[in-house]
Design a protein around this nucleic acid. Structure first.
Lengths: 156, 156
DNA sequence: GAGAATCTTGACGTTTAGGTCAAGATTGGC
DNA sequence: GCCAATCTTGACCTAAACGTCAAGATTCTC
């Protein structure tokens, strides 16, 4: 399980747009994030196709959010940029050399993925772009619903 | 975020070993799981290097668990097969075209990854191979996992 | 209308994950 | 000792993710 580059850089570019006063250009995002402008361009093109930002061409062009920050869920953005962990086609794309997966009817591994997917959905479900705009990292980590401990596993 | 093939197939192979009465060969796992024998061989080699199974060569060879099923944490297996979602080198490997990530001191995106990592750890931390051996998928999904004796759980 | 600043697109090269293959090493049975 | 069954290893091929590039389209300013 890995976080993809598209998720990381895409989310960072989106936050740059959210932070911007008015609109922001590719080269400004490039400077602020230290990502090559070609790569920023690719991310922005994706984010536009996902309906998260609007673009304007021309000399005073740039990008702005397509919706209010409070109405953009981080979970939705990540699902668009990197797909879901356990998506509907997962089992059929892991059938090995057979037509269908050997465990179609009952699968203990699938139960693991379902639990993980549920946990991730819970963790991301209520966070919006607005939430990430306010507050420092430390404040965000303490944000409801889940607590993130500095070390080990917390018991509630 | 995607579940890697190595995680899926590796876990399935490990469960085959756990299910087996005594030891099991590559070709048996291949038949049971519908995975090519070359690929099973690769997975088993990995699992052996990870210390989860022991191998025996020769005419009556095969694989068996290296530890008791109750002492093998699924989270540990998955971390070995696919790495952690947010590992210690994550930020430095996503610094774009700069030496260091532009957000080293305070990063709202990092807070997202920490939350997700914590949620996954919570969901997996206490499930063992033994848990997956008993029970159907439906039962496992509802499972309140049994505790794994103090190993393989807490990572930073 | 010309030129500058910007976004847009598709093609391309590189790196990593995924999977196969063949040759080798080890062990048990005869 | 020889053969068969098994695991082991490194090389190799393919597919997907990642990143770059160049040419084009659009819009503003003058």
């Amino acid at each position: 399980m890995k976080i993809t580059a598209q998720e990381e850089y895409g989310l960072r570019c989106l936050l740059q747009v959210a932070k911007a006063d008015g609109s922001i250009t590719i080269s400004e995002i490039c400077r602020n994030e230290g990502i090559s402008s070609a790569n920023v361009a690719k991310m922005m093109s994706l984010l536009r196709k996902g309906g998260f930002v609007k673009s304007n061409r021309g000399q005073v062009g740039g990008y702005e959010l397509a919706r209010k920050p409070s109405e953009i869920a981080i979970g939705e953005v990540l699902a668009f940029l990197g797909g879901r962990l356990f998506d509907p086609g997962f089992c059929s794309s892991h059938s090995g050399i057979e037509e269908e997966c050997a465990h179609n009817s009952d699968c203990s591994v699938r139960s693991v993925w379902l639990r993980v997917q549920f946990a991730v959905d819970q963790a991301l479900g209520r966070i919006s772009v607005e939430d990430l705009l306010r507050g420092t990292e430390q404040e965000l980590i303490r944000l409801q619903p889940s607590r993130i401990p500095s070390e080990g596993i917390a018991n509630r």
